[in-house]
Design a protein around this nucleic acid. Structure first.
Length: 522
RNA sequence: GCCAGUGUAGCUCAGGGGUAGAGCAGGGGACUCAUAAGCCCUUGGUCGCAGGUUCAACUCCUGCCACUGGCACCA
């Protein structure tokens, strides 16, 4: 079996409910994953939950639950998100799963054996109340610490460290020689600046179990647990390992190396979709970890921006939030998917406004796409009883341009630009209706043949649009196919070539795709 | 403090040494297939400020201002 196109999101810290930022990241990844399905590739889309750590442990304690029970409860809501957003995911990982913990431990054993770790003592200011070390940043102007931290003591603690210094030079040259490795470009420059301007400090990879018990035990030092890096990031390879990926299994001496039946070839990842806040972890620490393990690096780290609401930071305490579930319930999942992808170039920060959402919904989805499909197919029903008599090539060239641009933009990870290309075809088709005026042709029996051609061009354009739209608006694309009377799914890009509808084809029933919401029915 | 970046029409942004562009919003018109949608036409800008280079600067250079991001640090 050939290697699949492997795309991941960050796994979310299971310490709250999904919000707009989480939903956005997953939708971007889903659009890119679905586009690969369209291109005829095997795609594998992974997302999941990061469940260990201090905050989870404390939150569980506060609720009188075990950390595992706390995570199990929260996971229910998170696992429903893919369904809410119509994500075509292939796996959902939780870091408390055995398959993940086993791989984490195998990695730790291997890297310890090969001398990548050392043990050292660190002393610093420790807040017993907050159970955390404080840094100079936490100091107040008078040199003390906020009473919030309670008693602060100078504490010495031994931990394991991962050596980073030997990796700095090759990482810089790898990023320089692979322009797509960190994208967009401004983020790449940021990482290069970070790497070139300072010596990397070694990474502390453990916590004493006495202080933080909710983590994966270090196999060779059970009085410690792993700290984030060698836990959360590892999901990107622990899941491939659990599917028998030969590259990961061989590098880590895991069972499955011999290539079992049903094994998936996943690693290296093609795209890690992440938020800009965790760029350093993915562009600096993660590549170094992989190199130390003897694994190839992912092809691309795609860092997206943050959303605001009405120009303000979203915050639960002020209620200034966007609830993805509520928007989907009110407007439909495809409207939500459309808005977040269309509004932002990947990497830019966005600003959600209800007026902006409603504006795009009405002008682009309802009046643009929805009305085009509705007017086109309605005329076929009205004038030809829903049967397309003759083929024509009007609009073929415009459809081909839209297809070509859509594909190249999707391959370049620019779904926003792809939507703009698709909407250029929608605008052209709406213009074509006015220029050819099929409703006038219908009144003149001598121009019946011309009417056939126009109706065909419009129906065929809506069919091409369904194919182009499938990665973005899968439900809508399938509705268009159903209205066209086509039984299959518009999920093959090769079907975007002109002439897919045969003369004599009978359309299905027509219904508006995106009903307007600003004019209540009279 | 250091390093980037941004500042263009009411809004979101594109552009790039030689009559300022798009989408949305606003205004007008002709049509009627359609979700009163669509189509055509159109009003908006001394392109952050001040200098400089040039025959010519919104575009290049310098300084300043504002905002954003990253890094570092201090009380």
């Amino acid at each position: 079996m050939a290697k699949s196109f492997f795309i991941t999101t960050a796994i979310d810290y299971s310490n709250g409910q999904p919000h707009l930022g989480h939903a956005y990241e997953k939708i971007i990844a889903d659009v890119l994953a679905r586009s690969r399905v369209c291109f005829g590739e095997q795609a594998f889309f992974l997302t999941g939950l990061d469940e260990h750590g201090q905050k989870v442990q404390q939150a569980a304690l506060a609720e009188g639950k075990t950390p595992q029970a706390f995570c199990d409860h929260l996971a229910i809501g998170w696992r429903s998100l893919p369904k809410t957003l119509n994500l075509r995911i292939d796996d959902f990982v939780r870091t408390t799963e055995l398959r993940h913990k086993q791989v984490v431990q195998a990695i730790l054993v291997k890297l310890e054996r090969e001398g990548h770790f050392y043990k050292a003592e660190h002393s610093g200011f420790y807040s017993t109340r907050q159970e955390t070390f404080l840094t100079e940043k936490d100091r107040l102007p008078n040199g003390g610490f906020d009473p919030f931290y309670g008693e602060v003591v100078e504490l010495k603690e031994e931990n394991y460290y991962f050596k980073l210094a030997p990796h700095q030079d090759w990482l810089i040259s790898h990023i320089e020689q692979n322009p797509e490795f960190v994208s967009p470009e401004n983020r790449r420059n940021e990482v290069l600046g970070f790497l070139k301007n300072q010596k990397l400090e070694d990474l502390c990879i453990t916590r004493p179990a006495s202080r933080l018990s909710w983590g994966i035990p270090i196999p060779f030092a059970p009085e410690y647990v792993t700290y984030v890096w060698f836990d959360a990031l590892v999901n990107y390879i622990s899941v491939p390992a659990s599917h028998g990926d030969p590259i990961v299994c061989q590098a880590l001496d895991l069972p499955g190396s011999s290539g079992e039946a049903g094994a998936r070839e996943l690693w290296p990842a093609d795209i890690h979709v992440i938020g800009k806040d965790i760029l350093q972890f993915h562009a600096v620490y993660w590549p170094i970890m992989l190199r130390a393990m003897g694994l190839p690096l992912p092809s691309r780290i795609l860092a997206h921006g943050w959303w605001q609401k009405d120009g303000q930071r979203m915050s639960k305490s002020t209620g200034n939030t966007v609830d993805p579930q509520a928007v989907v319930t009110e407007w439909g999942v495809d409207a939500f998917r459309y808005y977040v992808v269309r509004e932002l170039a990947i990497g830019a920060d966005g600003n959600w406004t209800d007026a902006g959402f409603s504006g795009r919904y009405h002008s682009e989805l309802a009046n643009g796409l929805g009305n085009l499909v509705n007017r086109s197919l309605s005329m076929v029903h009205r004038y030809r009883g829903g049967v397309l008599p003759a083929r024509s090539n009007d609009l073929e060239a415009e459809a081909a341009i839209a297809s070509g641009e859509t594909e190249s933009h999707l391959r370049a990870c620019n779904p926003q630009a792809a939507l703009q290309s698709i909407w250029a075809l929608i605008a052209r088709a709406n213009q074509y209706v006015d220029q050819t005026a099929p409703f006038k042709l219908a009144k003149d029996p001598h121009r019946s043949a011309r009417l056939d051609e126009v109706l065909y061009a419009l129906a065929e354009t809506t069919r091409v649009l369904a194919v182009l739209l499938w990665p973005f608006l899968p439900g809508t694309a399938e509705k268009i196919y159903a209205q066209l009377g086509l039984g299959n799914s518009p999920n093959r890009f090769t079907d975007s070539s002109w002439g897919g509808i045969r003369p004599g084809h009978q359309l299905g029933p027509v219904a508006p795709l995106f009903p307007r919401k600003d004019h209540p029915k009279a």
